[in-house]
Design a protein around this nucleic acid. Structure first.
Length: 501
RNA sequence: GGCGCGUUGGUGUAGUCGGCUAACACGCCGCCCUCUCAAGGCGGAGACCACGGGUUCGAGUCCCGUACGCGCUACCA
């Protein structure tokens, strides 16, 4: 039997990193088992679902490298008739029943409270016992005629009061739940008979031939209800694999309202992450290859190493600080991205740098033409200490443009430190401008000779040059910088910097 | 309230059949390298493996209980 999995987001917002990880795990599982990866958009909540959101989710997945769905995308809202038919069939078979109880209003905000409250009164014996629903055993004929008479009804699954459902979760192991814990769940809403989540999911998964349901742990307990529906429908129950949740630093649920943009996948794209790096990081949240315990993994390695057995059961904390901008997201994610930036094949990085420079208005066609060699060398030189793609247009701006800013701290440290630089810099400019041939060795010799002549330390001139040429206090080996910035620009910037002393 | 799931340094994790003086990565600190900062190399701080019992010659690993966290419990998804 070939593996068939699906990722089923509801399009009510951007792609949450937790959902992105669920999608990734599904995808990895499919690819590692030679299976099919499908996508189903759960847009049954018409109020909150938007096309915009669907588009953004698709975009996010594509950015992660997941755009190879093996079949047409399924839109759940289009299957409502099938869902309804399935429930009505169960009514006919006596596995579900019409509940003519008037629909009660409930305030969404207090649901949890209400649930606890109801449970408490039920325990005292004064509450509503769904098992005692008067319509549960209504004679079929009477149920039928009342329905035909136009009386509104909801459809509930008839859950046997005895026994239990059980299943072996591929991650959490044997799960068991007594039927007495499960009420007769509503399948179809009263009035318009629109299908509810648990029904829709099951019917669609059956229809799509899903063999493995890989999803967040928040669905673990409800799985029993879904199994009941599978069984009533006479369908084969798939294998379930629930994934641990991704939590905020205070172990609360990660939410947009409380945690802002860190939870949105597109943030990572917009802030200069390398897709492969973020994917690699995401894969490690709640999963590890075990034994080897390695962390930097290529897509191929991820696919070959991935297994449901390696997924763990405890929730993972996504660590970040909302006060320290340097820790705007998990430090390990940042570290991993830097690792990718400096070690990935240059030819794969170049197009990304091009895009970044392009959006910053720094791209020039000749970087791909006559100056392609120079461009590659420059990127290779500066990538070593960059963290994100943004750095190429930020700290790296001076390598691609003349109008860059001087970091005040760098100016104070390297230029204002010694007033003598006011005279030295123009002199150095002249020397450097005359270097022949223009090589790192050539400029180094010129600069060191000049320092000797003037009786100053070479370091003074080197550090001053760094700030003069790049606006920064830190950067690559200075003579490599001279080389890449070029003779004319170097001399020009050295002279200009004299005014900053 | 009920039911379920979880608990290894700040974070992510490793730890097969019980032998651990508890390993790795990120982060942090120091040293080396050095024209700066990274990277890299070396070293360090940081966990009595939530707590309490039990089984055992021996428990992070097995059993029971407690605490804490999370999830579900809806005519939401």
């Amino acid at each position: 039997m070939t593996v068939r999995v699906r990722f089923a987001p509801s399009p009510t917002g951007y792609l949450h990193i937790g959902s992105a990880r669920t999608a990734l795990f599904n995808w990895l599982y499919a690819r590692s088992r030679g299976g099919k990866f499908l996508l189903r958009v759960e847009d049954t909540d018409l109020q909150r679902s938007t096309d915009e959101s669907t588009r953004s989710i698709l975009e996010g997945l594509a950015w992660l490298g997941i755009s190879d769905y093996d079949e047409e995308i399924v839109f759940q809202s289009r299957n409502a008739d099938k869902h309804r038919a399935a429930a009505l069939r169960l009514v006919r078979e006596g596995k579900a029943y019409r509940d003519f109880t008037p629909k009660g209003e409930r305030a969404d905000a207090n649901v949890k409270q209400e649930i606890a409250e109801r449970a408490r009164t039920a325990a005292e014996g004064s509450g509503v016992d769904h098992r005692a629903n008067p319509y549960r055993d209504l004679p079929p004929e009477e149920s039928e005629s009342r329905a035909e008479g136009g009386e509104p009804f909801a459809v509930r699954l008839k859950v046997s009061p005895e026994g239990q459902t059980r299943f072996a979760d591929a991650v959490y192991g044997e799960q068991e739940r007594a039927h007495s814990e499960i009420e007769d769940l509503v399948l179809l809403r009263s009035g318009d008979l629109s299908p509810l989540y648990n029904l829709s999911v099951v019917v669609d998964d059956i229809e799509m031939g899903i063999t493995h349901v890989i999803r967040g742990q928040d669905h673990l307990t409800n799985t029993h209800k879904q199994i009941l529906i599978y069984e009533a429908l006479g369908a084969q129950v798939p294998t379930f694999a629930h994934l641990p949740l991704i939590l905020a630093p205070n172990k609360a649920k990660l939410s947009k309202r409380k945690h802002g943009e860190v939870v949105s996948l597109t943030t990572y794209r917009d802030r200069g992450f390398i897709p492969a790096a973020f994917r690699n990081y995401l894969a490690l949240l709640g999963w590890s290859p075990g034994e080897e315990n390695k962390e930097l993994m290529s897509l191929e390695e991820l696919v070959s190493l991935f297994s449901l057995e390696g997924v763990h059961r405890s929730n993972a904390v996504f660590n970040f600080s909302d006060t320290d901008p340097r820790q705007w997201t998990d430090q390990k994610a940042l570290w991993m991205n830097a690792e990718y930036v400096r070690t990935m094949p240059l030819e794969e990085l170049l197009p990304m740098v091009k895009a970044e420079l392009g959006s910053a208005g720094l791209w020039q066609a000749e970087y791909e033409g006559g100056r392609a060699g120079w461009f590659g060398r420059t990127v290779e030189l500066i990538r070593q200490r960059f963290i994100t793609l943004k750095d190429f247009s930020g700290q790296g701006r001076a390598y691609f443009a003349d109008d860059f800013e001087y970091d005040p701290a760098a100016v104070a440290k390297n230029l204002k430190k010694d007033p003598a630089l006011r005279e030295l810099l123009p002199g150095l400019a002249e020397r450097v401008g005359a270097v022949e041939p223009w090589t790192p060795e050539g400029t180094e010799k010129a600069l060191r000779d000049f320092a000797d002549e003037k009786g100053v330390k070479a370091g003074l001139l080197i550090n001053a040059s760094r700030t003069a040429l790049t606006g920064q206090a830190v950067g690559p080996s200075m003579f490599e910088v001279f080389d890449v910035v070029g003779r004319d620009a170097s001399a020009r910037r050295l002279r200009a910097a004299a005014d900053l002393v």
